[in-house]
Design a protein around this nucleic acid. Sequence first.
DNA 1: AATGAATGAGGGTTCATTCAT
DNA 2: CATGAATGAACCCTCATTCAT
Lengths: 222, 222, 222, 222
Amino acid sequence: MASTSTTALSSSRRAAELSSENRFDQQLARILEHATDVFCEKGYEGASMRDLSRASGMSLAGMYHYFRSKEELLFLIQKHTFGTIIEQLRHRLEKISDPEQRIRAFIFNHLEYFLANQSAMKVLSHEDEKLSNHYGAAVRSVKREYYAICVNLLEQYKRTEKLDFSTRTAVLSLFGMMNWIYTWYNPRQDGNARKLAQEMGDIFLRGIGSSRSSGKKNSRVQ
Amino acid sequence: MASTSTTALSSSRRAAELSSENRFDQQLARILEHATDVFCEKGYEGASMRDLSRASGMSLAGMYHYFRSKEELLFLIQKHTFGTIIEQLRHRLEKISDPEQRIRAFIFNHLEYFLANQSAMKVLSHEDEKLSNHYGAAVRSVKREYYAICVNLLEQYKRTEKLDFSTRTAVLSLFGMMNWIYTWYNPRQDGNARKLAQEMGDIFLRGIGSSRSSGKKNSRVQ
Amino acid sequence: MASTSTTALSSSRRAAELSSENRFDQQLARILEHATDVFCEKGYEGASMRDLSRASGMSLAGMYHYFRSKEELLFLIQKHTFGTIIEQLRHRLEKISDPEQRIRAFIFNHLEYFLANQSAMKVLSHEDEKLSNHYGAAVRSVKREYYAICVNLLEQYKRTEKLDFSTRTAVLSLFGMMNWIYTWYNPRQDGNARKLAQEMGDIFLRGIGSSRSSGKKNSRVQ
Amino acid sequence: MASTSTTALSSSRRAAELSSENRFDQQLARILEHATDVFCEKGYEGASMRDLSRASGMSLAGMYHYFRSKEELLFLIQKHTFGTIIEQLRHRLEKISDPEQRIRAFIFNHLEYFLANQSAMKVLSHEDEKLSNHYGAAVRSVKREYYAICVNLLEQYKRTEKLDFSTRTAVLSLFGMMNWIYTWYNPRQDGNARKLAQEMGDIFLRGIGSSRSSGKKNSRVQ
DNA sequence: AATGAATGAGGGTTCATTCAT
DNA sequence: CATGAATGAACCCTCATTCAT
C-alpha cells in the first residue's frame, strides 16, 4: 500500500548534483510517503509518532529535524498532495478545449491520482479539519482553488450546452462520487482509472442533462 | 448540534411503568446521543472518555455501567443508527411499488436521516473500520444489508426500464454523492432534504439512463 | 530535610470527622510537602514529575488528580507557604505594640518559619518568577502584601524614633539578610531562630540608626 | 540585558597578533556572555543547549568545540566571573589601608560588579550547587577565598574598633543584603552602585557597632 | 573550526480502564 | 447505580550529546 507519488518538494531541484538541500528534501519526501501510508491505515489521531518513525526507519527524535510537529507533517502531506494533483490537472487542461472533454479530463485526473495514491487521497479526504487555524487556512485555500477549477469547468459546460442545474449540488455530488471511492475500490471488480472515469463521467454528465453524452461510448481522455 | 434521534434500544419498552431496565435504556440512549456528537466533532480516536463523560454529565467511571469499552460505545452507536435508518426505510418502501419512486424514496430516506442526524451519520461514515473484528463483523453485516437493499432497487429499475449500466458503480456513486454531504452541507444554500433528494435523484436517475426522469420536476417522495 | 509545616489547606476542616474533602486535602498536603523537598533539592526545572511522584509514593498519573500541572503544584506550594507565614505573623503582631518589638517579631517570625521549613522557604526564594502570568499574579500579590507589612512596621518605627533612612533599601536589605540564610545556615554554628533573630535584629536595628537599640541585649520576642 | 564584562580568559592574550588561540578565546568569551544572559533568564536547567546556541549565533554542534558539556559551560562562567570580581577587588584594596574604607571598598566593588553584570551575578547566586563534585569543588574553593577576604576585613575592623559581634553572622548578613539585590534592583528607584554601597555600608557598619560611621555622609570609595 | 543529521533517554501530560466505597 | 481515586501504558515532544563530513 505504499504511496508511489514522485515528489517535487523543492523547486531548486533542477540540477542533477546531490546538493545538501536535495538530500534533505529527498529524506523528507521519503518520510512523507511512509507517513501518508500510516495515516491512511490508522488515521491521523490513531497514528503515533512512534508508528511514523518506525515506518520510515528513522528515530523518533530524528523526525523532528524534518518538521516541527505531527500537525505540520500532516500539513506537508496535504499541501504536497494537493499541489501535485492541481499541477497535473492544469497540465492536462492546457491541451483540451472541448467543454465536455475538459470535465472528463478533470474526473480522470482525479481518479487516476486517487487510485495511484490511495493513501494520500484517503488522508486528504479523511483528515480534513484536523489542522489548526494556522495550517488549516493554507490547506483550505488550496482546496478552494481546486474546487473553483471544477466549478468553472461546469459553468462553461452549462453555457455551451444551455443546461439548467444547480452547479453547487452538481460539483459537490461529483466530488462525493469520486472521493467515496476509497471506501470500496477493488481493482479486480472496478477496473482502472480510465474505466471508472468513463463510467462516472457517463453517469454524471448525462445526469446533469447533456443529451449528447448519453451513449457516446468512445469518448476519450488524454 | 445535538442528535435528535428517538432511540428504540430495548424491545421491552412497551409498558409504561418505569422499570429499572427502562431507566437503564433511557440513560444509555442519552449517553449515546452525547457521545455521537463528540465523536462527530473530534473523531473516535480524538475523543477521550473524559470528553464523553463530560458531555453526558456522567462520571467517568459511571459510563462503564452502560458499555464495556470505548469501542463498544462506538459499536452501539453504529448499530443503533443503522438499525434506525433501515427500519425507517423498510417502513417507507412498504407503501411504494413504482421502481423509480422506490429509488427516490431510498435517496430521500437517506438524506433526511443524514441531515436530521448529521453527527450520527458523520460518525457512521468516518469511523468506518475502527471496530475490531468482533464488533466490526456485526456492523459490516448491517451495512451489507443496507447496501443490498439499494442494489435490489436498482436491479429492479434496470429490468423495468431495460437499462444498461454497472449496478455496482452506480450504487457506490450514489452512496458517494449522499455520504459526502457532511463535508459541505449548509442549510441556507442547500435547502432541506426534500430539495436535495430531488436534485440528487434527478442527477442520478438521469445519469443511469432513464429517459423519463429528465424534466420530471414534479415527482414526489412520500 | 522533610518539611514539617502543618497545613491548613481547607477552611472547612473544623469538624473532626474525616470527610472526603478532608481526605483529599490531607493527601494534597502530603504531596505538597514531599514536592517541596524535591523542589528544594533539585530546583523547579530540575525536578521531574517522576521525581515528585516517587517522593510522594503516588503514581505519576495519580498526581494529576490533585493539581492540573507541575506549575500549579509550585503555585500551591508558594501560596500555602506564604499564607501560613503571614497568618502566623498577624497572630503575633496582634499582641505587640512597641514599634521596635514589632520589627523584632517580624524578623523572628520569618527566621523561625524559615528554619523550621527550610525546603519551603528555599523554594519560595528561589523559584520566584517561574510562574506564568496566571499563577504568577496571585503569588506576587501575596508577596506584595507581606512586603507591605514590613514597610509599615519600618515606617512606624521611623516616625516614633524620628529616624532618617531609605525605607526601601532598608526593607530590601533586611529581606536579603534573612532570605540568604538557606545558603549557609548550619544549626551547630549558627544556633536557633531566636539567637539568629536577636543578632540580625541587632545589626539591622542599630544599622538603621536607633541609638537606643545598641547594647540592648535582653530584648525578647514573644 | 547583555553582560558587558570584558573577559580575560587566557593569559596569553598579551600580544596583539590574532593568534588562533586568541581567536578561540574571543569566541569562547562571546559564547560565555550570551550563555550568561540565557542562564540568567531561564535558569541553568531551564536553558537548553539550543537556547544557548541560538543566543550566541553558533550551531549547536559548534558549541562543543569550546566546552565539553553544558555543565562545564556553567563552570567556566562561574570561575571567570568570580575570578574577575576578586581580581578587581584585590586591585582596589591595594590602595586602601583604613579598615572601614576597606570594608566600604569591598561593598562597593561587589555592588558595582553586580549591577554592571547582573546576569552573571544572578547566575552566580542562583546556580549555586548545580555543579557536580568535580567542577563544584573548584568553584567552592574560589568562593571560600572570596568569603575569607571579607572575613579578614571584618576581623581587622573589629580589632581596630574594639567591637564585639559574631563575625560569621555579620559577613553572611552582608552577603545576603548584597546578593539579594537581583530580586529587586530598579535603577530608577535605587540609584547607582555608589549610592547603594553608601546606604548599605551605612546600615551594615553602624549595625555592627561602629559609632563613628553614623552620620558620616562624605565617606568615599575608590 | 564548524555544522547538519541523528539518537537514546527522558520531559510533562493524557489515555482507557479498574476498584473500593 | 454511581463515583473519586488511582494506575500502567502511551502520548507528543525536547533534551544533551555525538559523529561524519
